[in-house]
Design a binder for these strands. Structure first.
Length: 464
RNA sequence: GUCCCCAUCGUCUAGCCUGGCCCAGGACACCUGCCUUUCACGCAGGCGACAGGGGUUCAAAUCCCCUUGGGGACGCCA
């Protein structure tokens, strides 16, 4: 076990979205790759917006993706005492001060700054007031007024920010609760986090947090900021672009491995390789090959990756996933599904499609629905004659194998001097109820079995 | 507005750090053909990019500068 410790720190104010899932994946991979620890922390200091339901949903999504974490799940809401200890320490060492400015006053300062074409900041008017605690007062960090703060981003390289760009951020709200920046620093330090991998939207927070680390006299971890995921219009991915949460992809019938593969490959590369097993991901992952520009989420490619996984799986492995999408009360034994699935694998994009393509297999001959238009068009008198004759010959075929069925059909065709076209559609329609279905004719028959095949063909003959 | 970040095919990307092997490679998508009993799979091929402009250099996708474009952040949210 190395000393690498990474973390993922979602705030339970919504479902786990694909952007968050990807950063979680990167952090997890970095830890696993280095034989280190990956810890999970729930950032619920905003007690108004955080809910246990979302925490549970996030955890479910993590588990679905196969991202496991080490040690106890941590809740920031249970550590307020700890945060307050350090805020007090900052107060005592002169790195923080009490402030009684009202929200209105601060807003006015910001507006004024904007008008003067400066960055909107708190102007530090309470810095030297030396007021103590009191009703409606907050604790602010006393940021340095000169110099600069820099760090070497694992993804973006060196980043330097002038200290004058940062204002005196609030550490403790007037209701006594700690704010994000303070809590994050205390947590990452006390949890022994060595590399912080997080979303790009936190780059601006990093110098502020570094300032807190320094004020507390703590070692500073390495930081890496993962670029955003964009929608097709190159805007930050949002609900109007469609599915956002990991859960939705589960509901659409994607395989978790495929989602993981696609997400990791979005923004990270290992030469030309596209498909990675979990083991390969862990073996190859590195921060050097994380891209530093935002990437557009491409559903088409996700679909392709998902197809690759479906094709690569043993049929039996797909049964449980597919069952979730089978209609209520559908009767299908594992044995039957295992025979059907190979026909679906080269054709289906996801579990849902697999289930949809299976419909005609799961009803008995007398309940099979026939597509009316196709019946009218395909079941001509000649076609029905062929069907009846074929039915008799199949019935007489004691072998009922792919080869024997082929012999039956081609033999009949040769006798009558017909092309396959003459029987292709009629037979398919007879046994599937539609002219388009997955699988070759003989494969279809073999999957259904002789009795069912004959029953369907006989019923079809009575239709027109 | 201010600050930070980013910029290779439509999209994901390799290459960039350690210039020449790159008139730029792979994948998705798209198009064409082959295979074929539907639909697919598969196979073969095609289309298609170094944002623009200056430098540095014998040589630049690779290094430097500017412009343009895009994104993010500026909260008693995280």
């Amino acid at each position: 076990m190395s000393n690498t410790v990474t973390r993922f720190a979602p705030s339970p104010t919504g479902h786990l979205h694909i952007g968050g899932a990807r950063t979680a994946l990167f952090s997890w991979l970095l830890a696993r790759r280095n034989n280190g620890k990956f810890v999970l922390r729930i950032e619920d200091t905003d007690q108004q917006r955080s809910t246990q339901e979302y925490t549970d949903a996030i955890l479910d999504s993590m588990k679905w993706l196969g991202i496991d974490w080490d040690g106890e799940l941590m809740y920031q809401s249970k550590r307020f005492d700890l945060y307050n200890t350090y805020i007090d320490q900052l107060l005592e060492t002169g790195h923080a001060y009490w402030c009684d400015c009202t929200t209105e006053q601060v807003d006015a300062m910001r507006e004024k700054a904007m008008l003067e074409k400066r960055k909107p900041k708190y102007d530090g008017s309470c810095r030297e007031k030396n007021i103590g605690p009191g009703e409606n007062r907050v604790v602010r960090f006393k940021a340095p007024l000169d110099g600069h703060t820099s760090f070497n981003d694992m993804i973006k390289g060196p980043i330097v920010v002038e200290n004058t760009e940062m204002d005196d951020m609030i550490l403790r709200r007037s209701d006594g609760t700690p704010t994000y920046n303070l809590a994050v620093v205390v947590d990452d330090h006390t949890m022994g986090v060595t590399e912080v991998l997080r979303g790009d939207d936190h780059v601006n927070n990093t110098p502020r947090q570094i300032l807190i680390y320094k004020a507390l006299g703590w070692d500073i971890p390495r930081f890496g900021h993962v670029p955003m995921i964009l929608g097709p219009d190159k805007k930050k991915l949002s609900k109007r672009h469609g599915a956002l949460s990991v859960m939705e992809y589960e509901k659409m019938g994607y395989l978790p491995e495929a989602v993981v593969n696609y997400l990791v490959r979005l923004g990270w590369s290992h030469g030309d390789q596209e498909i990675f097993s979990k083991e390969e991901l862990i073996e190859f992952f590195d921060t050097e090959h994380l891209g530093n520009s935002p990437s557009v989420f491409d559903t088409k490619k996700l679909d392709w990756v998902n197809c690759e996984y479906i094709k690569a799986k043993a049929p039996a492995e797909l049964i449980p996933g597919m069952r979730n999408f089978l209609p209520e009360g559908a009767e299908a034994s594992d044995e039957y599904l295992e025979k059907i699935i190979p026909l679906l694998q080269p054709r289906a994009t996801n579990y849902k499609e697999m289930a949809d393509m299976t419909d005609f297999f799961l009803v008995s001959a007398d309940k099979l629905e026939y597509d009316e238009k196709s019946v009218a068009k395909v079941f001509t008198p000649e076609a029905l004659d062929h069907l009846k004759e074929l039915t008799a010959r199949i019935e007489a075929d004691s072998e009922f194998t792919h080869d024997s069925l082929e012999a039956v059909h081609t033999g009949y065709l040769a006798e009558k001097e017909l092309k396959f076209k003459a029987i292709g559609q009629p037979v398919r329609l007879a046994i599937c109820g539609k002219v388009q279905s997955p699988g070759g004719l003989y494969d279809l028959m073999l999957v259904m079995g002789k009795a069912e095949t004959l029953a369907r063909m006989k019923r079809a003959a009575t239709l027109a």
